[in-house]
């Protein structure tokens, strides 16, 4: 059975400027034990998609339609309290910026113990033991357990966030650009840690990133997002060898393989469309090499090409 199944989800921000259609008809599923990479340019709605799964879309965002099934449970039909109990315990999330993700006036132990005691009825001593164990796994020395967030480096803070996410053995972790605020060396180490712990704990992972390099390195399957739509989903190698959507093709060329100059040359011209007034037809129309008349007026349907290779383009 699928662990997570998102069906035709629409999440809009009803802002003062107008309605921002950040996630606009997304369907996606995740198998047990799998790592799914969600990749796309900044502002295409990746974070919004991730937050929807935890029902944490901030005001003025609203889930307008669609369904999200977690282990067969319809998440959108649960009460607030029921969802709260799932958060951290079943589904955990790791955010982009570890520097601001910890409460500055609570020390590390307080953070972890609080999370444990929120979900489990054990005494405080056991909770502290568990805290020390998990911190050991992410490589934070025991003697720093009483230190405050500002006393740690960015990389360490992100490892603490990983510890917080793993703490209660959730089945699914959503990692939203977990390494993009870290420098390259620490990025690699953190990703490796995450990969190893994922194996050890038998987790499923949704890895959100704008970095194609990272996504090919880490994921089993990849979903490409563009302007609120998912435009292509395929197995890792399949997507790399046989990208179908013109946008994916352009992106793969843009992956920095040799030098930054080459990357620049291959970069896709133009900007993604505004999500306030998305174009009627294909959202990639304005930047597409293969654009035809129909692309301008008609939104492409999703087509399944080969085994589990889904694409949203009039070419297929």
């Amino acid at each position: 059975m699928k662990l997570l199944d998102i069906k035709n989800l629409r999440v809009y921000y009803f802002s003062e400027e107008g309605v921002v259609k950040a996630v606009d008809g997304v369907s996606l599923s995740l198998n047990k034990g799998e790592t799914l990479g969600v990749v796309g340019e900044s502002g295409c709605g990746k974070s919004t998609l991730g937050l929807s799964v935890l029902r944490l879309v901030p005001y003025p965002g609203k889930m307008v339609s669609g369904k999200i099934f977690y282990n067969g449970i319809d998440l959108l039909s649960l009460s607030d309290e029921e969802v709260r109990k799932l958060r951290g315990k079943e589904i955990a999330m790791i955010f982009q910026n570890p520097d601001v993700s910890l409460n500055p006036i609570m020390n590390i132990k307080e953070h972890l113990v609080e999370a444990i005691l929120t979900h489990e009825e054990i005494d405080e001593r056991e909770a502290v033991e568990k805290t020390e164990e998990i911190l050991g796994k992410v490589g934070i020395p025991k003697n720093r357990i009483n230190d405050y967030p500002h006393q740690f480096s960015g990389g360490m803070k992100q490892r603490i966030m990983i510890a917080l996410a793993l703490l209660l053995n959730p089945k699914l972790i959503i990692a939203d650009e977990p390494t993009s605020s870290l420098d390259v060396l620490i990025q690699a180490k953190t990703l490796e840690l995450l990969r190893n712990l994922k194996e050890e704990y038998g987790l499923s992972l949704i890895l959100i990133t704008h970095d194609f390099g990272v996504v090919f390195e880490e994921s089993d399957r990849i979903a490409v997002m563009y302007a609120g739509h998912i435009i292509e989903i395929a197995k890792n190698t399949e997507l790399y060898d046989k990208p179908l959507h013109p946008y994916t093709q352009a992106l793969i060329k843009a992956v920095p393989t040799v030098t930054p100059e080459e990357q620049k040359l291959n970069y896709i011209l133009g900007m993604p469309p505004s999500l306030l007034t998305p174009p009627k037809g294909c959202r990639f129309y304005a930047r597409c090499k293969y654009a035809r008349e129909i692309c301008k007026f008609k939104e492409p349907k999703t087509a399944t090409v080969g085994r589990e290779h889904i694409v949203k383009c009039h070419l297929y």
Binding site: L56, P58, L86, A92, M93, S101, P104, T118, L164
Partner: peptide, 13 residues
């Protein structure tokens, strides 16, 4: 703040 969002994501009441 982000730390409030992160706390919500942990299921803190």
């Amino acid at each position: 703040e982000d730390y409030v969002r992160a706390a919500r994501a942990r299921g803190i009441k």
